[in-house]
């Protein structure tokens, strides 16, 4: 999981524009996973189309066992998608609420948000998955899928909260001051001035978290959720084609993560030029 540079972010003294400074601050944690410049795009193309080529060629030229594997895993793929997308949505909401809570002036709200973030970030995701599935699941009558989504959302929500908080705090103080000086309330300033700028700034780290979540969703196979990895394991354990099964699973994960990282990169570009009517 990527760790946001929460504690070390500071707004620059006198930025040329508030946004560049904030972006520079957040770029501390940007990995090269999201293709943006020409070198990484070239590498991305090789990896993506190479993986697709392999995934098509292997079952074509060696249907046993590759075609069998490919026909065995689709429902696992659907489960992986469901878990990932649901968890992304919920963890975003939890992240926004948590981030706002971390900067809230009301002590109670602030304390709750801080405890949430500290506790969740202190326990490994796998342990949280087990805990929520076996301990809390039965209490709330959650089935395997819902427990998996709950665990992933709660865990990633905490990391998102720190990203939101760091993003909000990286917006130069002058922005809030200008808004307040104009007579806006803190809440109005947050929603109209701070958060819109925060979105552009946090998109790279949030994009990274999505990709990480997609990969971490494979952990739910431990909960007997029939996701992609589990289907791969089931196939391998009955046919003993370990190498072939895990190769296919790895290729599918690679295709998915590469695809989504490109999507995030495109969204970033769109946001950079959004609203520039006079360019």
């Amino acid at each position: 999981m990527t760790e946001p540079a929460a504690a070390t972010l500071k707004a620059n003294g006198k930025p040329s524009t508030p946004l560049t400074a904030a972006k520079q601050a957040m770029r501390l944690n940007e990995s090269s996973l999201i293709p943006g410049d020409s070198e990484t795009i070239a590498a991305w193309k090789i990896a993506f189309f190479g993986a697709i080529a392999l995934t098509v060629a292997l079952p074509l030229f060696r249907p046993h066992p590759f075609l069998e594997i490919l026909s065995f895993v689709p429902d696992g793929l659907a489960a992986t998608f469901t878990v990932t997308l649901a968890s992304i949505c919920i963890s975003l909401i939890l992240g926004l609420l948590g981030g706002l809570g971390r900067i809230a002036r009301t002590k109670v709200v602030n304390r709750i948000a801080t405890v949430y973030v500290e506790v969740v970030r202190g326990i490994p995701l796998l342990v949280q998955l087990f805990y929520i599935y076996y301990a809390l699941g039965p209490l709330f009558h959650l089935n395997g899928l819902m427990s998996a989504i709950a665990a992933l959302s709660i865990c990633y929500g905490a990391y998102m909260a720190e990203i939101f908080r760091a993003g909000i705090q990286s917006i130069p103080k002058g922005q809030m001051e200008a808004a307040l000086a104009l007579g806006m309330s803190r809440t109005q300033a947050l929603w109209k001035i701070i958060l819109p700028q925060t979105v552009k700034v946090i998109l790279p780290p949030i994009g990274n978290e999505f990709i990480a979540l997609l990969k971490d969703s494979s952990l739910v196979s431990i909960l007997a959720v029939s996701d992609l990895l589990r289907r791969g394991r089931e196939f391998a354990s009955t046919t003993f084609n370990y190498l072939e099964a895990y190769t296919v699973v790895a290729l599918i994960y690679l295709i998915m993560t590469l695809f989504f990282s490109r999507m995030v990169g495109l969204m970033e570009e769109r946001l950079r030029t959004h609203g520039r009517k006079n360019h």
């Binding site: 508030p18 000086a181 104009l182 007579g183 700028q197």
Partner: peptide
């Protein structure tokens, strides 16, 4: 604060809004 306007050393214009939107924001919101 509605009666007291302030101009800052570092301008503090809102970068995600156009010039006109910057000016019209407070009257419409506040």
């Amino acid at each position: 604060r509605e009666e007291v306007g302030m101009v800052f050393q570092s301008f503090n214009l809102f970068p995600h809004l156009s010039v006109l939107e910057n000016i019209a924001l407070a009257p419409t919101t506040v």
